[in-house]
């Protein structure tokens, strides 16, 4: 187990290296640079800036320089948020994004699984159609529609919750972002759980459990849900990585100081180091959560061997 995790994390290093290399050159190939502002800088200033940030060196030298810094854990300074290093930006933003994302993830898993089970057990009855309809609606309404609507209804019209802002992390400020982020995920988890539960309830071993007069709870939760949860687990891995690293839509609309906004802004402003930092952080999250998924899989299904 420990050996397996170590091995998996070691094999992630080449993947990360590939991602870093790909992203590095991709950004540099693109036209423009961090200091090509709308009002051009004086040539002298430009030259100085380029020298400070080593942008005057050949590309391969910059690449090695970046890799060297990275190996020491230094993500470099941000080009756009001039007073901050990339690491500082993440140190302040990541906890915020993780709070919102984790809330949404828990909400989505709990609500989605419950709705999915309820729907599957009432297959082809009105309750099922209702839940499936809502779930379909959930995956079709984009967050950038839900977010302003929720903010308008609960924040402006009803005045129950703050329409936006972070309020230094007061819980009332987190509710709307979490709900917004969770809604589409609830819909997906519901549909996944429903499908898997229906299949599980039709399986032969569930027939056995029913034939042996086991309690409905045992049949549904102990036997059916354990196998039905597997597709949800595989979905939840990448979804968790995406949620915890912040959502650009939710953070922009509610004005939350997370890391979700960085990437687009950084990419638009050619903030090379911040783009790289974001890519690396997200890739690490994805790798870690894929590993978690595999561990959970082995925990749930004895036929899966780690190795």
């Amino acid at each position: 187990m420990f050996g397996y995790v170590t091995r998996r994390l070691l094999t992630a290093i080449p993947t990360l290296f590939l991602i870093v290399t790909g992203a590095f050159f991709l950004i540099r190939v693109a036209p423009g640079g961090p200091f090509n502002l709308e009002r051009p800088l004086e040539a002298k200033v430009m030259e100085n800036l380029n020298r400070i940030y080593h942008l005057d060196k050949p590309l391969w030298e910059q690449y090695l320089y970046y890799l060297g810094n990275l190996a020491r854990g230094d993500f470099g300074p941000s080009f756009v948020y001039r007073d901050f290093s990339v690491a500082e930006l993440f140190a302040s933003g990541l906890p915020v994004s993780i709070q919102i994302g984790a809330g949404a993830l828990v909400l989505a898993l709990v609500a989605g699984t419950l709705l999915g089970i309820a729907s599957a057990l009432r297959q082809n009855r009105p309750a099922d159609y209702g839940i499936v309809g809502l779930a379909t609606l959930g995956i079709t309404i984009p967050t950038f529609v839900i977010a302003p609507l929720l903010s308008l209804v609960f924040g402006v019209w009803l005045g129950w919750l703050p329409a936006g802002g972070w309020g230094d992390g007061a819980w009332s400020y987190k509710i709307l972002p979490i709900v917004t982020l969770a809604l589409p995920q609830i819909a997906v988890v519901t549909r996944l759980t429903r499908g898997a539960m229906i299949e599980a309830m039709r399986s032969h071993h569930i027939r056995t459990a029913r034939a042996y007069g086991l309690k409905p709870w045992t049949v549904v939760v102990v036997h059916a849900l354990r196998s039905a949860i597997l597709p949800v687990v595989s979905y939840a891995g990448p979804a968790a990585a995406a949620l915890l690293t912040g959502s650009v839509v939710v953070e922009t609309i509610f004005g939350i100081p997370g890391v979700g906004r960085y990437f687009v802004q950084a990419a638009l402003n050619r903030d090379y180091t911040l783009v790289m930092g974001t890519v690396i952080v997200i890739a690490i999250f994805i790798i870690v959560f894929n590993l978690v998924v595999d561990l959970l899989y082995a925990l749930i299904d004895p036929r899966v061997r780690l190795g």
């Binding site: 991709l26 693109a30 687009v264 783009v275 994805i286």
Partner: peptide, 19 residues
């Protein structure tokens, strides 16, 4: 599998931003 583990949507954003 490797492509799955990439933050692909970000590469799209990069592509669109840069080109």
């Amino acid at each position: 599998d490797i492509l799955y583990s990439l933050p692909f949507i970000f590469f799209v954003i990069l592509l669109v931003v840069f080109f």
